[in-house]
Write a protein that binds this DNA or RNA. Structure first.
Lengths: 230, 230
DNA sequence: CGGCATCCGGGAAGATACTG
DNA sequence: CAGTATCTTCCCGGATGCCG
């Protein structure tokens, strides 16, 4: 009881490998556990603190989040960094390998959205909906567009720069935006994916639209979910 | 004990949802459990029987395989079909949604191969290596090619039709092949991804090469693993 | 043999409470 | 705020046995 306190159990995340050279099997080793990919999703737009991650993942326990972060660090998907004083807080940041998982996350999302069981009206995190824009953009409809749009979801702000079929998204206020949406990710999703009229949402105060209203109407029409399969 | 025999426990695969509209979360609901995606991989080239699936997934227990197949059926990823008599065996076949997961599997494989932890020299299933050809083909090097190649791994045979940057793969003997490899998936991988000289493998009897030897040399050079990240 | 049910041991997930 | 400790519950994986 009083001995061996220092040598905490040396168990790595898992040692039950699939023992399979297939890349898919390796991927399941890396991100196949519950919550894993959703954590990576939350880190996709830059470093985050423990509490911020937890807030974006409703239902996860601190317990599991700690384990996953440890596992990711061990497998080279993220690094923990300590910000310099005075803000000496610890943040978690993806490595290049971690950021490279964006294509995986997008493909998974595009695929799952084809399932009849998928319900786009559930709540979702700010990072989720911003990432969905990069996934679901219809390149045809966005042709020739070059604008900066701001988003505010409570404390979190994003800046999206649409340039043709490419959307560059960064965290933080968009000072140079010609249009800004303020609300919850859910109401924005209702407008973009649920076909809810912008005016109604704005009237009800669920979604505040500042700036170019015509652009807002065009923006929400830029995205479309894939057709259901089966 | 004697009552209620028919009403088996109504528990679906899981009811602990992420409660997240993000497509990635939905995808994790569908294929986020252990072994799930590897089972889909094994089904990628057509219907399979229970025992065939088990053989391609070293380490899986019949128990878990049954559970996954039930779950997949409930979520519309596969269907169980009974072949007409006299071969009244049951087979599992992907639905369109299931087949659509190929892009997901390929992206996951491509991503995980960039991890320094990935070891391409582990054993792998016939379906794995055939799928890896579709993932890792270098379109440049395959330009202008139009050939049919056969593969035999024990009982399993495949026919691959390379046409430009596209590889169409079907199960079964390739009667019209101009080249055929016979061996284990592992030795073929050693030649294609491990850089092992074809001649040495052929001499040792690990990989039998019949037909156009020059094409064989070109074939194994068509594929390349992505560079490691981090 | 193929497929499914049942039981069991170990371990991971989830909730809660606690600590620096 | 950022985790850790603990406890309960559930899932994974192996073994066995039943039935076509």
């Amino acid at each position: 009881m009083q001995l061996q306190k220092g040598t905490k159990s040396p168990k790595l995340p898992r040692e039950r490998w699939y023992d399979d050279a297939c890349g898919t099997a390796m991927a399941m080793e890396l991100v196949g556990e519950r919550w894993s990919l959703l954590i990576v999703r939350e880190l996709m737009f830059g470093p985050r603190r423990f509490g911020e991650l937890k807030a974006g993942l409703p239902g996860i326990s601190a317990n599991v989040l700690t384990q996953r972060l440890e596992g990711f660090e061990a497998s080279g998907i993220l690094m923990r960094r300590k910000l310099p004083p005075p803000a000496s807080v610890q943040v978690y940041e993806l490595t290049p390998l971690g950021y490279a998982a964006e294509t995986v996350i997008k493909e998974l999302g595009r695929w799952a959205a084809q399932s009849p069981l998928h319900d786009p009206m559930l709540p979702l995190s700010p990072a989720s909906i911003m990432l969905s824009f990069r996934t679901m953009l219809d390149a045809e409809r966005a042709r020739g567009l070059d604008v900066v749009i701001g988003f505010r979801f409570g404390e979190e702000a994003f800046r999206a720069h649409l340039a043709g079929s490419d959307i560059r998204i960064t965290r933080g206020e968009a000072e140079d935006a010609v249009l800004r949406f303020t609300g919850t990710p859910r109401t924005l999703a209702a407008a973009v994916y649920g076909g809810q009229p912008l005016d109604a949402l704005h009237e009800a105060g669920d979604l505040v639209i500042e700036g170019d209203r015509a652009l807002a109407a065009r923006f929400v029409a830029l995205f479309s979910l894939p057709a259901k399969l089966l």
